[in-house]
Write a protein that binds this DNA or RNA. Structure first.
Lengths: 203, 203
DNA sequence: GCGCGCTTGACACTCGGTGACAGGTAGGGC
DNA sequence: GCCCTACCTGTCACCGAGTGTCAAGCGCGC
């Protein structure tokens, strides 16, 4: 999916195979539906064996959901990099924007993937699981920012959760509208709603 | 789990077997961990065959997560029954309270289950999936209440999402504190934070 | 007692996922 | 050029989740 020019030869070879696999997978899955495609089939379409598929992806779901890993890392990095004096609502809006932008960037491809995920229970579940991890990480980051020990930490968790809920809802509406709605505008509206709660003083 | 006196004999028999199965499952799973227990094992512990297990539960996860079904229905019913003039934040707080109460009711049992779910990725994923369904349902209910067509519906979805995020965070803290924290009090504090966003006018 | 329907167990099968082993290939030292 | 090593791959055997099918068991009305 993403090719770094400064990588060892072995890494680039690995990337190549991985791309071949996910490309084949995405085509088949989007076309026939998640459950109607076997891993054997995907591997065969990419010209390799099932065993090799599982050396590159931990599960059949992973081939679709994998990119969420770097998305989470990107969000955490963005939040960590935000100036300390910025209000939580602004910082979090930028955090979420990173991922929204990434989607809007490769709109055609991203839309297909998002629709596939939201329309497939098994994939949706994995997606939500990742998001739960993000929430923990963002909450920790927020607790740091606000200088409160992560002891109880109700407020940072809520704030992170609300921001990701906004993200989720935006994706849902974007996907349901088949790309007609503008994700950036949806995000702005969503954050306008939740901002007062995000900036509320920790109880 | 729940026995209704006014039910046909066949139904009660079914309930009995189902209870036997989930009891055996919960014991084994809590003791040895989700992945270390096979369905065969569970079925054997309840004195029946694997095939029978799958006639009562759609999946291994379901035996743990099943009760969430009625929990969701309970919440939707509560929200639907709330007086129309009540503000969204109050109505949603009561909605979430239904489930929090249910947990606090059978605290010992509920705590074990919640800890098992939150500590097992596969179960957590299913749990989140259910919650996503609740969100859709609660959002629809909210849209009705507010008298706005469910056309775009950003606000109701956000509100439902925030309320469930609160629910989630409360469960997380309750589980992490091993039951020491008071769920009711956590819920109140959470809703105090998010209330302004819930009651904000739809954009 | 007889047939009917529902529940169950047994068996076979598919598919996701893993461990173990064997071969192939690229690169480095000699 | 040759060998040794390291890595990648396919094959095979295997486990566990989940499903379809069939035949036996059992309660129940007639």
């Amino acid at each position: 999916m993403t090719t770094r020019p400064e990588a060892s030869l072995a890494q680039r070879k690995r990337q190549l195979v991985s791309d071949e696999l996910s490309q084949a997978a995405l085509n088949l899955l989007a076309q026939k539906g998640f459950d109607a495609v076997t891993v054997d089939e995907i591997a065969a379409a990419a010209g390799m064996s099932k065993r090799t598929f599982f050396r590159y992806f931990a599960s059949k779901e992973d081939v679709v959901v994998q990119f969420l890993g770097e998305m989470g890392a990107g969000m955490r990095a963005e939040l960590a990099g935000r100036p300390a004096e910025e209000s939580p609502s602004v910082a979090l809006r930028h955090t979420v924007w990173v991922s929204i932008d990434a989607c809007a960037g490769h709109a055609e491809q991203a839309l297909r993937v998002v629709q596939l995920i939201l329309g497939t229970p098994a994939l949706h579940a994995r997606f939500l699981e990742r998001q739960a991890q993000w929430r923990d990480e963002l909450a920790a980051e927020l607790a740091d920012r606000l200088g409160l020990g992560s002891a109880t930490g109700l407020h940072p968790r809520l704030a992170a959760g609300m921001a990701l809920t906004a993200f989720d809802v935006v994706l849902q509406l974007w996907s349901a509208s088949d790309g007609a709605e503008d994700p950036a505008e949806l995000t702005d509206r969503a954050f306008a709603t939740i901002a007062p709660a995000l900036d509320a003083l920790p109880a």
